[in-house]
Design a protein around this nucleic acid. Structure first.
Lengths: 357, 357
DNA sequence: TTGTATGCGTTATCAA
DNA sequence: TTGATAACGCATACAA
């Protein structure tokens, strides 16, 4: 660690100008300044308006959002709770949220819980103290009661990707049923006769639950076409058992000369499985086993992995719009917006791949 | 999009309790409540304290940070400007920032400019209006003047990863010179006799500039050992020319029976190059050409790519600490904290890889 | 068209 | 040990 020799800017720390300063500088009252700021420009004489503009420019005045919010009762802050920014899904949703916020004049207060349930609670509390006008929640273990305090306080809540048991509120996410069906049928169409659906513990996370159920619902009828499947639950913190189970299934299928495909329920699972396959089968693991997943991460193209791309950007945008409508006073029943996923077919599941049927 | 049938929670929208409500409920004055909130617990009679606690619990009172901030002049908000959350580097730095903020009682106000220079400006303005106490900046095109308004206003600024021309302020980042030297020497040690350093346009981004210079400074002396190298500039928005140049170099090297390695200056570049190599050489591109990079992204392990891992978490933590010290009133010259990177050797650059010398 | 006075929820100053 | 009261920076009802 080096020290630079130049000193910091001298302690000329000038206090930021307030509306009072501007009023004095412009030789008028605070009200006029306030009017100018709020665009009530028609009621101001051109002459006064000019003086105000000059004063603002000269003092580099910026209205204090805090004070503003205190007075009008809304500060344009929207809370965004994210379970895991490490998951590209979250980042992409965030982009949509940011864009929509910008367009509608909100400022997202982003809280990243880093997969810690306790953090989620703390952040939600914090959002409360900052008096956000609404919250968008993509959490892991937040329970209904916690969110109810928002709803009850008149703070609209929008859920992203996963619903929360016992809570009836706006929610937006992937149409999981359709997405899983799409993917599963694709695998069947490509000639795979056995599909292993790999998912994290799903009791408590609705999207995982729905995806798993959708998988079983889709694979069931496919038995008529000779296609079967089963679910493997993987705990990313202790993946060994699940990975061993996958290996066993793969081996058995190979013995019976079957064609098996692995279907990861999301990107983190896919990555973990891919790493394992690479370890077990070497660099050309993709020649040996077919892997697909929900979530189109940046490395999917590199790995040539078929995926279902989520409409992440739109999910984020929609979430903000839902919030905005409530904030504008719309009263209506809770809504559910399920957006369709898009199948991105790559080499991993193409008929000519794998042991080249 | 479906409509759920349950209505939203009834419009019982109860206003959040204020300090006045609590005072009334506890049968005392606001001052005592304020004292309790600020931990001046010693000056309160146990009896009164209990009543206050009860009132707070009953009303589920949460002090309004906005009002607090307005009064005390500091709101515990720290601005964090990120050029690109799509880059895992940023997310990791963010994790460090969040952890440190939490530990020190700050709330990070995260602004994601999504690689748009204009957004950076707008967000910086916004941060100003929210009266953040300090800012951490990892931007693309922010210029000195813009940041000066913060410094001059007494708002400390900490730069992350890249410095800004003409601005003397605290800065935290990777020790680029050491990292590039480490990586380059590793390549030489592994028997590569030619290294192509691939970097985005670097005039305006200090870290890229420094890395490029460090590469040349390191590769120069290695000529004695028969190792040469050159730089290729890649524009991710229009990568074709650079990729063609890479191909040409690769072909030439192969003709001369040389062993060439590609060295990407960061993860986004590495991904782009890897995608291209896969396209050109097929799924086993890694058998054909050696690629390494700065930044240890999640797919690096999957691709078996050697990298230099940045101490991202510590960078974020350190940035907040720098800020905190200034906010606590420490006056000192601008500091520069350069943290060491860690070489993560994988198959891509091992001697036995590639055309197996 | 402009300005005065009051209050948003909190903390700080002062007096009791 | 406690409690009025006056700000903080701004927006609004109201008066001029």
């Amino acid at each position: 660690m080096h020290e630079a020799q130049h000193p910091m800017t001298p302690p000329s720390a000038t206090r930021r100008a307030t509306i009072t300063d501007v009023a004095r500088e412009a030789g008028t009252g605070k009200t006029s300044i306030s009017r100018y700021l709020n665009g009530e420009t028609s009621v101001l004489s051109p002459e006064l308006r000019e003086r105000i503009e000059a004063a603002i420019a000269k003092l580099d005045y910026r209205p204090n959002q805090m004070a503003r919010g205190l007075k009008r009762g809304r500060n344009r802050l929207i809370g965004m709770l994210l379970a895991d920014l490490t998951n590209p899904y979250s980042v992409e949703v965030l982009q949509g949220v940011e864009a929509a916020c910008h367009a509608l004049g909100y400022m997202p207060l982003i809280c990243h819980a880093a997969n810690e349930i306790d953090m989620e609670r703390r952040y939600l509390q914090l959002l409360t103290t900052y008096r956000v006008e609404g919250v968008i929640v993509n959490a892991l273990g937040v329970k209904e009661e916690l969110l109810q305090t928002f709803s009850r306080g008149g703070i609209p809540v929008v859920l992203v990707d996963r619903s929360v048991e016992g809570l009836v509120t706006d929610m937006v996410g992937l149409d999981n049923v359709a997405a899983v069906a799409l993917a599963t049928r694709h695998l069947a169409d490509q000639g795979f006769d056995e599909v292993l659906f790999i998912v994290q513990p799903f009791r408590r996370v609705s999207s995982r639950r729905v995806r798993e159920a959708a998988f079983r619902d889709t694979i069931g009828p496919l038995a008529a076409r000779g296609v079967s499947g089963s679910t493997i639950v993987i705990d990313l913190a202790d993946a060994a058992p699940a990975l061993a189970a996958i290996d066993a299934n793969l081996d058995a299928s190979r013995l019976g000369a079957g064609r098996m495909a692995l279907f990861a329920a999301n990107a983190p699972v896919a990555l973990r499985v891919a790493l394992h396959l690479k370890e077990r089968y070497g660099a050309d693991w993709q020649q040996r086993v077919a892997l697909m997943s929900i979530d189109d991460s940046e490395w999917a193209e590199l790995a040539g992995m078929t995926t279902v791309r989520q409409p992440t950007y739109d999910i984020g945008r929609r979430a903000v719009e839902f919030l905005h409508e409530r904030l504008e006073g719309a009263r209506m029943p809770a809504r559910e917006c399920l957006l369709p996923g898009e199948l991105v077919v790559r080499a991993s599941t193409r008929r000519d791949n794998s042991q080249g049927i």
